[in-house]
Nucleic acid binder design. Structure first.
Lengths: 408, 408
DNA sequence: CGAGGTTTCATCGTGTGTCGAACTAAGTGA
DNA sequence: TCACTTAGTTCGACACACGATGAAACCTCG
């Protein structure tokens, strides 16, 4: 999509306004046109034409008003049609392919998971199988699929190309192209952390936030920065990849070849390894969380130690980025309750922190499903098809009249 | 300017296109319309109407082509008129008020400086005196001033209000309002580091960069983040303020009350103090640079040590933000040549760095004038009057057809 | 029961934008 | 003199936002 520097024309304005109305409707659940006028800040006439367009495309259902007792013509409530089609969100991992079918508004309708083979081609086959399974389960066909979005634990280069995915053992796989060949619906592919961030923005804890950081943990520790109302990727696509920030000068070995990386303490296998050294054999985040819940002292102290390391990284992030929220997502979120006290302890020691508004640190409510829902978010973006350089989700979602920037 | 959530209408597109053409012209110095078509990516017809508008407003001069021997109708070259009016850029500091008058394109035509009194009102008086002095010097009147921009070493809240400026000893001064009362031209006020970042983007080392970090040093150490083609301020306006990142667990006392802040090593007075402890009495950055140039071993080792501390902070920044450039600006830039080796040494030790494209670290070519030129940049933005949420300088400035994002 | 008020929503007209294509302008070279 | 080439303008088609107007559908109160 070389639509960077696409010219700014009226048609683009329309697409943006459609997206604005769509998101307002999605977040409200059901709304009348006049409500949309208030929440989007658009002109009533504009809302009217946009709504007509959406209705003509069959995206909306209109329910009549619930007779609220107020005087005046009762509003006709609009809802995003549950049967207007589905979005597919997927997450590819070395040992797991997870696929989700949702309504256009992002409500889950069915889910599936399976194990991929070794190669990239195998993984794509598994993915296809999953989508087909969901379709038969729902009694739908490919014609009902509006778009597919996939989150991948890998560094992406342009155009949905996997440059390097160490966990998957992929290198330079033109994933988007391959999927475009297979399917004739819009496909969007992105890094798993970026996808998680999008999910938190659209569906999760960060819906109201304009500036937030996501730290996602599964097999590795990833991260993404959502700044100024849009995803920030950095010059080479590495922005927010904080798994390999050093937290201990001569610390534990990390898979990256370095020592003392955050990932060497916080990743699932890292926690498991550290617990084994202390005589506990636990399988993963979920088992560790269960042990912590049961009050296992060894587990609790380890989580506190690791939480302190994570807290220092978060404190540095806050110093530089001044976000309003940090979301801990992915499978990692299972153990977050036992990390938070240490994190908050570290945060509290910084002197400057008192001057600033406090930055909240939260566990994702999407939990393990964050990346998969991120796939849904990617699909949703593809359906709305806005040029990424114009997308300012906060601009699309915020209530009117606020002034979030501190610009003169 | 509560123009956040301003509706997106055709008139706004025009303003954006005017800005595009203006910047293209400014950067090219002189260009024909067909050149502008190539550099801006706009339609010839659009360029034509935009150029007519600019010409009707008296912003342009047309020089005839220098008969280049090629066949075809020779182009008429357009230039931003040196006499179409002036922009005023200013920098307020505790001991210095510096004011600059430039052409609309940002070329300096005259400069002035003076010492302010203690109070905010005094400083504004000094500022007014400066502008008047420049006007008489140039034989112009207030009617020729198109806009004024001011950089202030303080934390800003909305609408050009100084929330807190410890160095100036200001607190809650509605600077923009006060200036609006005095003058009847557009006024823009911003934090000095943000202003420096804008200057680097518009006039300096970062003209081509979409993602860069500015670290500015005068009396304190400030910073600003320019990410994804626009200034990122953070949720509370503190983003990039890296002066108080801790570089030494139990290090030197800092003015903020904490210990071991970067500012406690790198700020002008901090360097002076450290040198005094080592038996050198030097007045400031400039004198220190002179001593270093003369080969003073004590000064050189200190700069190397401090450079290493700065290098670690920069390395962390790069890890998180993946910028393509770090610019060291302000009076600090005098000593940068002796900091760079240490910075590069530190940068080189990080293992992951090999995978990434290398991030350049450079001294600002604007040097001490960065903030003042930032004022000019603010004035320029005010003249072009784009809503800040839409401004994506890279979108305005970049060559067409490139695809900098790595989005699917 | 019916008139007036109120809220919701559709539609029309105006102004402005982009954009493609036709067109004029002004040079070169044979 | 006549193609040919490049530069720049103009015109018409189409899309958009938006203000005003008006129709629709309900309420309340007399």
């Amino acid at each position: 999509m070389a639509e960077y520097r696409q010219r700014l024309n009226p048609a683009l304005i329309r697409r943006l306004n459609v997206a604005r109305v769509f998101h307002a409707l999605r977040l409200a659940g059901a709304a009348s046109q006049s409500e949309l006028v208030r929440t989007t800040g658009l002109d009533p006439a504009t809302v009217s034409t946009v709504v007509r367009q959406l209705r003509d495309e069959g995206w909306l259902t209109t329910t009549t008003a619930p007779s609220s007792g107020r005087s005046g013509r009762p509003p006709t409530l609009l809802t995003i049609d549950r049967d207007a089609g589905i979005l597919i969100g997927a997450r590819l991992e070395p040992e797991l392919v997870r696929v989700l079918a949702t309504t256009l508004a992002g409500e889950t309708r069915a889910d599936w998971q399976g194990r991929p083979g070794r190669s990239a081609a195998d993984a794509l086959d598994t993915l296809s199988t999953g989508v087909e399974a969901l379709l038969t389960q729902l009694g739908l066909t490919w014609r009902d699929v509006k778009a597919v979005g996939v989150g991948v634990p890998a560094l992406m280069s342009h155009a949905g190309r996997v440059a390097y995915g160490p966990n998957l053992r992929w290198r330079d796989v033109p994933l988007q192209v391959r999927l475009d060949e297979r399917w004739s619906v819009p496909v969007a592919v992105d890094n798993d952390s970026s996808a998680a961030a999008l999910a938190e923005k659209l569906f999760g804890e960060a819906r109201e936030a304009r500036d937030f950081v996501v730290i996602a943990g599964h097999s590795g520790i990833g991260g993404a920065l959502y700044l100024g109302g849009r995803l920030y990727r950095g010059h080479g696509g590495y922005a927010g990849e904080i798994g390999h920030v050093r937290v201990e000068p001569e610390g534990r070995r990390c898979g990256c070849g370095d020592r003392g990386c955050l990932e060497a303490y916080l990743a699932e296998r890292a926690l498991v390894a550290q617990l084994r050294e202390r005589g506990r054999r636990l399988r993963g985040y979920e088992a560790i969380a269960a042990a912590a819940l049961a009050g296992d002292a060894e587990v609790l102290t380890l989580l506190d130690e690791v939480g302190e390391r994570l807290g220092r990284v978060i404190a540095d992030l806050i110093d530089v980025l001044d976000p309003e929220l940090v979301v801990l997502a992915g499978a990692l979120s299972h153990v977050v309750p036992w990390l938070l006290p240490a994190i908050e302890r570290v945060e509290g020691t910084e002197a400057l922190r008192a001057y600033r508004g406090r930055c909240r640190v939260k566990a994702s409510t999407l939990g393990t499903e964050a990346v998969t829902m991120g796939g849904v978010g990617l699909a949703m973006e593809a359906v709305l098809s806005l040029p990424s350089w114009l997308v300012d989700q906060e601009g699309l979602l915020a209530a009117p009249g606020r002034e979030p920037t501190r610009r003169a």
